[in-house]
């Protein structure tokens, strides 16, 4: 097993294909940013949002760079709470987000679960639970079933977590199991320096989380998570390696969460000095400057893209806000899918 590598972008990677992918990914980042800005504003104004709001601000590049490598309908993507951008890059529609946050009965969770817990398991998007690390083994199991049924082919399953979740037993058990089975699992760790308010010095004692890949016997990569070009490069490589049958791939992106844990949290525990380091670069700004440096899009075209996205966000909020809320009188209140079968046999389920 090769030692973990640090991946950076070099000019020779800037092929036509790469440019196209970069621009597509940038658009997903921008969609996520503008959508989440609206969520945050609605949360602060009160009344509209059902439950909490958890943003991926500062993590859009790293998140979307993975999602864009995957094919919906073929691959699996289990995003976590800061993966609005990754979910969109994988193919989740914006309405799934707005419907869930605004409590529309037409959303994928129909009011039964909220915000970032949404998913569509039959479309390769399992729905996360709050208990961190648990999706690693779930995605592993999805891949294992495909292998058993002969449908694995060159599909991959990706899941995302943060630095905090790497301390859980679930994370360890899930990765180890995927490694034992040599399954095409891509595990993206967003090291955003804080798990809620806990700094990395209280979370782990190794120098770099990517060192853990060696212990699991899997391939590992480090990347600057604020840099879209480098993030695309690393996920292209990792997803390709997984598709080729090289087993689980662990990527650790270093960045800073540019928001609180949720919008209820002012993140006053983040030292001001840290906010002045390269970790705190805004990946959306970095990507936009890169596009201009490469002369891939003009300022006018960038503005046009931003306006388009803003309209899409407006439409998604507008539609969801006019939809019915779930009705407790229409709810069957049954937790088993076979409740009709079981209640036919007895009087209680």
């Amino acid at each position: 097993m090769a030692a973990p590598q640090t991946i950076t972008f070099t000019e020779q990677d800037a092929t036509d294909d790469f440019r196209q992918q970069y621009l597509v990914t940038y658009r997903h980042m921008l969609s996520a940013r503008l959508l989440e800005d609206r969520l945050a504003a609605l949360y602060r104004s009160g009344g509209k949002i059902v439950g909490g709001v958890y943003l991926g601000r500062g993590q859009e590049a790293y998140s979307a760079a993975l999602g864009v490598q995957l094919k919906k309908g073929k691959d699996i993507y289990a995003g976590l709470i800061r993966d609005q951008a990754g979910r969109m890059a994988f193919g989740e529609i914006m309405l799934d987000t707005t419907r869930t946050y605004l409590g529309s009965a037409l959303g994928p969770m129909r009011g039964r679960d909220g915000n970032i817990h949404r998913g569509r398991p039959k479309e390769g998007m399992p729905a996360m639970i709050s208990h961190l690390g648990t999706m690693v083994s779930v995605v592993t199991g999805m891949l294992l079933a495909r292998r058993l049924q002969g449908t694995l082919g060159d599909t991959v399953g990706a899941t995302c977590i943060g630095d905090g979740a790497t301390s859980t037993g679930s994370f360890h058990e899930g990765i180890n199991t995927a490694a034992v089975e040599k399954l095409p699992l891509v595990i993206s760790v967003a090291n955003n320096q804080f798990a809620y308010s806990t700094p990395t010095t209280r979370q782990y004692a190794c120098d770099d989380l990517v060192e853990r890949a060696v212990g699991y016997g899997i391939e590992g990569y480090s990347v600057d998570g604020t840099d879209l070009a480098a993030s695309l490069t690393v996920f292209r490589l990792a997803v390709k390696r997984a598709r080729e049958g090289q087993g689980p791939q662990m990527i650790v992106g270093t960045l800073l969460r540019l928001s609180g844990h949720g919008e209820h949290d002012d993140a006053s525990y983040i030292p001001p000095t840290m906010r002045k380091t390269a970790l705190a670069r805004d990946c959306v700004t970095v990507a936009e400057e890169f596009i201009q440096t490469q002369s891939w899009l003009s300022t006018a075209k960038l503005k046009e893209m931003r306006d388009e996205v803003r309209h899409e966000v407006d439409d998604a909020f507008s539609q969801a806000s006019h939809e019915p809320a779930p009705d407790p009188y229409k709810e069957p209140w049954r937790a088993l899918s076979s409740w009709k079968q079981l209640e036919g046999d007895t009087n209680e389920a």
């Binding site: 399992p126 648990t134 083994s137 779930v138 679930s170």
Partner: peptide, 12 residues
Amino acid sequence: DAMIGVAIGAAL
């Protein structure tokens, strides 16, 4: 933990 997680994923 992973055994049950794997079973859940497989069932999906």
